[in-house]
């Protein structure tokens, strides 16, 4: 009887180990970092507008409606892939605000002229300081901001049709319905 009891402990340890290893080896994307900023207010900023550089943009410009904040750059190849999807989203009446991340102003303007500009406005984050405040570590990244200016969701990587219909759109509907 004593023998049986002590044999169960290593067996339990073994199963615990299996569960832990199973979890850690089946991580979808080891690059994925959980966001620290969910349900926190959007960080304050004071940055130039991309189209009219004399105009300063602030966090107040984001408050008022549920919106998407998209971090993009001309050096980011994946941003071009998600661009048509963003175009479609904006046609559905969703406000998209651009953060032009570590980019060149003229290149960014040329990029928007060439591929279209579905954004309500862009801020120029030349030094990447706003991106750091958002915990961004690459582009593209997309945040959902509610009407009070609180960050409610973060998507790292390309916004595909599938990401939009299965993740972002339901959250936006929920936020719109709740407010």
């Amino acid at each position: 009887m004593i023998m049986n009891k002590s044999l169960i402990i290593p067996l339990l340890c073994f199963f615990l180990l299996i569960v832990l290893l199973w979890r850690s080896f089946s991580l979808e994307d080891p690059h994925f970092l959980p966001s620290q900023l969910i349900d926190k207010p959007f960080p304050k900023f004071n940055l130039e507008d991309l189209h009219s550089t004399s105009r300063m943009r602030h966090v107040d410009d984001l408050v008022g409606a549920v919106s998407l904040v998209n971090v993009w750059a001309t050096w980011c190849a994946n941003c071009l892939i998600e661009h048509p999807v963003l175009e479609e989203i904006s046609q559905n009446g969703i406000t998209i605000i651009g953060i032009n991340y570590n980019d060149n102003l003229l290149k960014a303007r040329a990029w928007l002229d060439r591929y279209g500009d579905p954004y309500a406005f862009h801020v120029q984050d030349k030094e990447g300081t706003l991106a750091i405040d958002l915990g961004v570590y690459g582009a593209p990244e997309t945040f959902i901001i509610d009407a009070s200016g609180t960050i409610r969701y973060r998507h790292v990587g390309v916004v595909t049709e599938r990401v939009w219909s299965q993740k972002l759109s339901p959250i936006i509907n929920l936020l719109d319905g709740g407010s």
Binding site: L33, N102, E127, G128, A131, I132, V136, Y137
Partner: peptide, 23 residues
């Protein structure tokens, strides 16, 4: 470095590492 899987800020050439070193 948040972009790289196991490199510190000191040893990374990634853009985000450069920005964070500056910060």
């Amino acid at each position: 470095c948040p972009q790289c899987l196991n490199t510190n800020l000191a040893g990374s050439d990634a853009m985000i590492a450069r920005d964070l070193r500056r910060e």
